[in-house]
Design a protein around this nucleic acid. Sequence first.
DNA 1: TTGGATTGTTGCTACAGATCAAAATGAATG
DNA 2: CATTCATTTTGATCTGTAGCAACAATCCAA
Lengths: 255, 255
Amino acid sequence: MSDQTPEDCKICALFCDSSNFCATLSPPELVSLSAKSQTTTFKRGQTIHDDLIARWPIFVIESGVMSLQHLLNDGRKTIAAFYTRGDVVDMRNSSNRKVGHLVALSKLKVCKLSPRIFESIVHSNPRARSVIWDSLRDQSFRAIDHSSDLAKKQALEKLASFIFECSHRNPGKSKKDRVEIPARRLDLAEYLGMQPETVSRCYKILEDQKIIKVSDLSLIHILDTPALRQIANGARAEQTITAGTRPNLKMRSAG
Amino acid sequence: MSDQTPEDCKICALFCDSSNFCATLSPPELVSLSAKSQTTTFKRGQTIHDDLIARWPIFVIESGVMSLQHLLNDGRKTIAAFYTRGDVVDMRNSSNRKVGHLVALSKLKVCKLSPRIFESIVHSNPRARSVIWDSLRDQSFRAIDHSSDLAKKQALEKLASFIFECSHRNPGKSKKDRVEIPARRLDLAEYLGMQPETVSRCYKILEDQKIIKVSDLSLIHILDTPALRQIANGARAEQTITAGTRPNLKMRSAG
DNA sequence: TTGGATTGTTGCTACAGATCAAAATGAATG
DNA sequence: CATTCATTTTGATCTGTAGCAACAATCCAA
């Protein structure tokens, strides 16, 4: 843990991102917030403990990926949400309601904000309030979108949908058809409500169809955006995922 | 549509609910907000049109149930979220992002708030800001919980979970073991990501097990709360849903 | 109240994806 | 570079629930 100085903030990537909360701050606000903020880093797999959250319920993801996990009695695990660079996480109600565990999915750096200063900035700075409000609403609708992916989509459709979600959340990263997948297969499976084997098979189907190309485990290239979009929006695959029975699968004509 | 007067507000059930936004307003705030607010009613199945949302993006559910629906290309439909009495719905970003359609699931009465007045109250009244902020964050975590229900739970577990969700969202309604289900079987199936037939079968299993009693299509009694809780938390049923094979099913020992 | 339409239930069959097992690939360590 | 461990992929089988059809119950309008 290390205290922030206004100088630290000024070289922080978030401060330079005009759509981000930190970039809306006036110089005096920046001074007072940074004086009471701290950065912390976590390693992959580390859980952010409840007592830390109780003392620092508000923080910003500076780099890396964080997950919100739920656990069932018999050990089944779900990643209910991802948080990535720039996301402001507000856990101030986590004591009333069991919201799950925050776990780092990669090397993670967060900047913990003083709730008191945060609140006073939200009070006095309408632009900051508007940005933070929009961001929270966006998180809410993102969760709702995810629900609807999980509810009725098939495995292939969920994966296609997820690829677009990743692409939208990483707008900067050079070309549009190059998408970085910020999670391992197992994490991905837990987020999409399927098994890692199924994820792997779905990737294979999309590759065989020449819709995507998997260069690295965490980097794919979209070769046929319309086809991928079609699948993501529910052009139901005519085929099962089961190991190499029919070599190429067709889509049912989409409604 | 009818304009509100402060007198209307004072007899509105929301105003009397201390945990609600409207109850935090000072008399002058109430006067200015009510002067610019309108109530509208919808019948079951009616969609709240985009142009209405564009003009009135913020509203409060006064009575009835509203749903946020997503549609796939081939006609599969999902209810991604429910909104019930007291929920403040803020759709101000719905133009940027496709969030789905708002559809009334029952006779529905909403009170549309002027965004300008709403914003100015949020600016000047810290108590109102805190209530509305908590409520929005709660909606977000509710959506996340729902995601995790959909991701890894089996049909029976999802239904059990949903029964508790309904029970929590209707705390007032007399006894605790009496739960009102504010949706028809089909709506429920669309919310839980399953087929109406499966919902029906799951109800039957819970009844056969003497865990619940279904009095009415929209009213159930919980007979064995611990058992229901066990199922909801993922004590995986040892049995399939398929029609009356084994008469009584046991639970696997929960981890 | 009657009749027609909508919604819910029950039984049966089929299949998408879970599960188990094992090989293959990748990452970490000495 | 070799060795070990962790993760991913592939193959084969099994199962929970989707899908279909037929019937029963409920709702609604006339």
